[in-house]
């Protein structure tokens, strides 16, 4: 399992697009936003916070969605398409562990990327670290599970690597929109806001923003994430084919 995980990690780093989209792009967005005066003004409609304060949780959720929906599905669906998984079924190891190794690689990348985001935001742009840190971490964990489960569902539903790429993007953009990447959730019209709260991105961002401000995340947001994780995982397991 260690050799397998290290091999998958090496392939992930060698591919370059994974680290670029999962770590580089969110950091780049943070640096761009952080340098815009518009993002650093304290605003009444955000409860006196700056736009950048509210964007850090959004970028954290963006990292998770990027890895789960745009990086993971093409790799796994490509493995299935090329018979990599079929070949592994004839070894004592079996393909389930490749899936597990991929999930570990995604989680490790998420840890590195989120840590980099929080530290750069703190030390380069003066965004305070989440005040309810345990609640923040719990939310990230649940959000990662929910989004990875959706990513596996995308993998299961897509016939091949390219289709997984396309389907992942189709799911990704509405989700990051509803997570507030283009328009913070607080400023959305009521209907859109309710819809947002029902998605894993919206629930995750809301819960992380609560935790940033020192509150324990609302239980409804955490339950929403758990429900997505369980529902998508069960559906993915039923639909998933090794070949």
């Amino acid at each position: 399992m260690i050799t397998l995980t290290l091999t998958e990690l090496r392939l992930f780093l060698r591919e370059r697009s994974g680290p670029a989209f999962g770590v580089g792009l969110p950091l780049l967005l943070l640096v761009i936003f952080g340098n815009l005066p518009f993002y650093n003004k304290h605003r009444d409609d955000l409860g006196g916070l700056t736009l950048l304060d509210t964007y850090v949780p959004i970028l954290v959720a963006f990292v998770l969605a990027m890895l789960a929906l745009n990086v993971l599905p093409p790799v796994l669906a490509g493995y299935r398409e090329k018979g990599v998984l079929r070949r592994l079924r004839t070894t004592p190891v079996g393909p389930v562990r490749v899936l597990a190794a991929q999930l570990i690689v995604m989680l490790l990348t998420a840890v590195v990327s989120v840590a980099a985001l929080l530290l750069v935001a703190r030390f380069a742009f003066g965004v305070v670290l989440p005040r309810q840190f345990a609640g923040f971490l719990l939310t990230i964990l649940l959000a990662a599970l929910a989004l990875l489960a959706v990513g596996l569902l995308v993998t299961a539903a897509a016939p091949g690597g390219r289709a997984a790429n396309a389907l992942g993007a189709v799911v990704f953009y509405p989700l990051v929109f509803l997570g507030g990447l283009f328009l913070p959730i607080q400023t959305m019209p009521a209907t859109l806001r309710h819809l947002s709260h029902a998605t894993p991105m919206g629930a995750a961002v809301t819960a992380m923003q609560d935790a940033s401000n020192g509150h324990w995340p609302h239980w409804l947001a955490l339950v929403t994430l758990l429900a997505w994780a369980a529902g998508a995982a069960v559906l993915a397991a039923r639909l998933f084919r090794w070949e």
């Binding site: 091999t7 392939l11 090329k82 018979g83 990599v84 079929r86 070949r87 004839t90």
Partner: peptide
């Protein structure tokens, strides 16, 4: 040990 007809490996492996 099995050699399958159309199973490949990751390109960069």
């Amino acid at each position: 040990g099995v050699q399958l007809q159309d199973s490949q490996l990751p390109e960069r492996l």
